[in-house]
Write a protein that binds this DNA or RNA. Structure first.
Length: 743
DNA sequence: CATGTCTCCATTTTT
DNA sequence: TGGAGACATG
């Protein structure tokens, strides 16, 4: 118990040992948030303030849930029992499995991930003969999910305008389709479990009395439904602890409502607000930069990070001539640092959008620097895995039309579009699933379908008594999947992945058997864990849907490439933050709306605070974007960082010297000033009058300095697109009238 | 039914 | 530029 509190600073200590009240913990980046959260739980348990069954701890990602469990098991000798720790979706799933009847769900409902949901919607729109030009499936998906995240059902939609009416119609039809197919999407997990408690007071009270402590991580990322969902577990004697950082709210674009923090204060915490501001990660200059930047945002809850560590190195700004030059700079610097004893694995290259990774990868590859790109295809998203999973799903629930369609003719068995159309038409007419029609009609249309029906039914009986891994192995063989990939030229990887799926199933079984505290996604009944349902397969399917699976965590010593979003929660000794240009970061599409820029700034804040020792910032005057040369000017964020914290360097026209003297600052531009003097000769568009060229620096009497990005037309019609930077933005000007001067 | 060609379109993303 | 999806062809 001593070591539990050892090394906590006073604020952390206060948070961990808080009496039985609700509180909001405002936890800055790198201030020991997760540590406090887990220490709090351990402290409650060790001091008999609560039993493990009275704890309800919610995170966003499986990774965070796992980490919390791992840390808890380190702090507590025997792993606690019956504790509810998991993701929102995992816990919602657990609840719905326990009370599926009250929730109006079949015992073995399946979970649709986003891709499944999208194909379900496409199917739906087709069957409704919807005008897919006006009602594109992605839009419908977005609409439905947004409504669900607001807690709204189709019948709640205001039917004012025809568009909403139509959408509401789709929404209702979609829900009906899901019900028919026994499937539940992600948003539905939350909404359905929310309604479950809403409509069943006895159940609600049961949980409200049971959970004396509710703890929520990354609270700034919750959406409105999630907050309402949480509130239902809180009884009059429940203490809630919400941990979050409004400055790190970077998911508003997908519904996160950081205003929940204010509401939480009003609803529960009141004056119990603890700020964790001592940072254990970054050195002084880096923190100062972050603080200065984020202070530009309005409506913050307020926080100022500080550190015991010294100022450390200054930030380093590199103004590259073009994106290649920028990449080369980063590669050289990375190699240089490695020679100085840094590990490649301690370095990260961050960018705003994935498209930027290409050149970086290319350059690193050429330089022979090992790297790893995050955010690729995830395990359970792979085609071969999806196919295998579809067979598994059909065993549990043959009415799953998505799964049916995926593998009915894969590997090909002579079931063409014609047959499927017939089946589909009949299913529509009867309101039954494709499987049911197929089975009844198995004798009629062609022998293909009969074969498929027989295959599935045979598999069902054959695997009844098999273990999960054996079941999968058997299915791979019997369905012809394995043979199919064996024939394929480049099928070896896929076969390996399928083998990996079998292994994953074994691991899943082990995890579920040996501990009562597997992440909540794994367990079906409330009290007992493991496979109380008698279906390890169903549990495994839920697990697969809820946890897309991290890519194989290779611990190679490799530079890490990822978007700033993906870097949240991580830290690196050295961070290269690239592409700091107006339009890219801040991203021009994100700038619409007044709050857009603030979220971009928070994103920048997150990026800066990833760095422990070294932070390299860079931008390029010229960048190849969508196959066209774009001319950019430094991001406004650079001008929001005090110049005194930065060293800068510029190349002169495309000549980058990768020699030793690169650390010495040459030109001292505090970022953001439009003093770029380089005029790249590349990519000039020779459309307009000869006097003007893309990439030229110009001055406008009203808008000030800018860079010509594009030219169009000729003679009197000639127009130029000029980027005037942060204040005036990008404008089209008629060259005949605008009083533009070359600079 | 597999494979090639064309057109369109380009943040960020977890569950 | 390059990837995904829609269409057409062998």
């Amino acid at each position: 118990m001593h070591n539990l509190l050892d090394g906590l600073n006073p604020r952390q200590h206060a948070a961990v040992t808080l009496p039985h009240t609700s509180a909001l913990i405002l936890a800055g980046a790198g201030c020991g948030k997760t540590r406090v959260l887990t220490a709090r739980i351990a402290w409650l348990l060790k001091n008999g303030k609560a039993s493990s069954s009275q704890i309800f701890a919610v995170t966003f990602t499986n990774k965070a849930a796992k980490e919390m469990l791992t840390r808890l098991s380190a702090l507590l000798p025997g792993m606690p029992h019956a504790i509810w720790v998991g993701t929102f979706h995992g816990l919602a799933n657990r609840l719905l499995r326990s009370h599926h009847q009250e929730a109006g769900l079949p015992r073995l409902f399946q979970i649709l991930d986003s891709a499944d949901q999208l194909s379900a919607i496409k199917r739906l729109l087709k069957s409704l003969n919807a005008d897919t030009d006006r009602f594109d499936a992605k839009k419908v998906q977005l609409f439905i999910n947004q409504q669900k995240e607001q807690g709204l059902r189709a019948h709640h939609m205001a039917a004012d305008d025809p568009w909403t009416r139509k959408m509401a119609e789709f929404y209702a039809a979609y829900d009906a389709q899901c019900a028919r197919e026994n499937v539940v999407d992600f948003a539905e997990l939350l909404l359905r479990s929310h309604e479950l408690l809403q409509h069943h007071p006895a159940l609600r009270e049961h949980y409200q009395q049971r959970f004396r402590h509710i703890l929520i991580d990354e609270f700034q990322d919750t959406n409105r439904l999630q907050y309402r969902w949480l509130k239902q577990f809180a009884g009059s004697d429940t203490a809630l602890m919400a941990v979050g950082d409004d400055d790190q709210s970077i998911y508003a674009f997908r519904g996160a409502h950081s205003g929940n923090m204010h509401e939480f204060q009003r609803d529960y915490a009141g004056d119990n607000l603890i700020r964790l501001e001592q940072n254990y990660r970054s050195q002084g200059n880096i923190l100062d930069a972050a603080n200065a930047l984020i202070s530009q945002n309005s409506g913050r809850m307020g926080k100022n990070l500080w550190t015991d560590a010294g100022a450390g190195e200054p930030l380093y700004l590199y103004a590259a001539d073009n994106d290649q030059d920028e990449a080369r700079f980063i590669a050289d610097k990375a190699a240089h640092l490695q020679q100085q004893g840094h590990l490649f694995g301690e370095m990260a290259i961050l960018y705003r959008s994935n498209a930027q990774s290409r050149i970086l990868e290319h350059t690193l590859f050429s330089a022979g620097i090992p790297y790893r790109v995050y955010g690729g295809l995830r395990f359970f998203d792979r085609q071969e895995i999806r196919h295998a999973m579809a067979y598994l799903r059909l065993l549990v629930n043959p009415d799953d039309d998505n799964a049916f369609l995926r593998v009915v003719n894969f590997p090909t068995r002579g079931i063409g579009a014609r047959t499927l159309e017939l089946i589909d038409a009949e299913a529509q007419a009867n309101g039954s699933s494709l499987w049911q029609v197929a089975r009844r009609a198995a004798g009629k249309p062609g022998k293909g379908m009969a074969g498929f029906v027989q295959l599935i039914e045979q598999l069902q009986t054959e695997t009844e008594l098999m273990s999960l891994p054996d079941t999968i192995a058997h299915i791979l063989n019997a369905s012809g999947l394995a043979a199919h990939y064996q024939q394929e030229k480049e099928g070896q990887d896929r076969l390996d992945n399928l083998q990996e799926l079998i292994n994953a199933a074994s691991v899943f079984l082990q995890d579920n058997a040996e501990s009562a505290v597997a992440p909540a996604s794994g367990s079906v009944s409330e009290s007992a864990s493991g496979s109380a349902s008698g279906s390890a397969l169903a549990d495994f399917l839920a697990h697969a849907a809820l946890e897309a699976g991290h890519q194989n965590e290779q611990t190679n010593d490799a530079v890490q490439l990822m978007t700033v979003h993906a870097a949240k929660g991580l830290e690196f000794r050295t961070v290269f933050l690239s592409g700091l240009e107006e339009g890219l970061f801040p991203n021009e599409q994100a700038l619409s709306g007044s709050k857009g820029i603030e979220e971009e700034r928070r994103l920048m804040y997150v990026a800066i605070t990833r760095a422990r020792e070294h932070l390299f910032l860079s931008y390029a005057h010229t960048r190849l974007l969508h196959g066209q040369t774009r001319y950019g000017i430094p991001s406004r964020f650079l001008s929001e960082i005090p110049a005194s914290l930065m060293q800068s360097e510029k190349t002169k026209n495309n000549i980058y010297q990768s020699t030793k003297n690169e650390f010495s600052p040459k030109i001292s531009t505090s970022g953001g000033s439009l003093s770029g003097t380089s005029r790249p000769d590349t990519g000039a568009f020779n459309t307009a009058s000869a006097n003007w060229r893309s990439g030229m620096n110009v001055r406008h009497p009203k808008f000030g300095l800018g860079v010509i990005m594009q030219l169009e037309g000729r003679g009197d019609d000639a127009r130029a697109q000029v980027n005037f930077g942060a204040v005036h933005g990008v404008k089209w000007l008629a060259l005949a009238y605008a009083r533009l001067e070359p600079v």
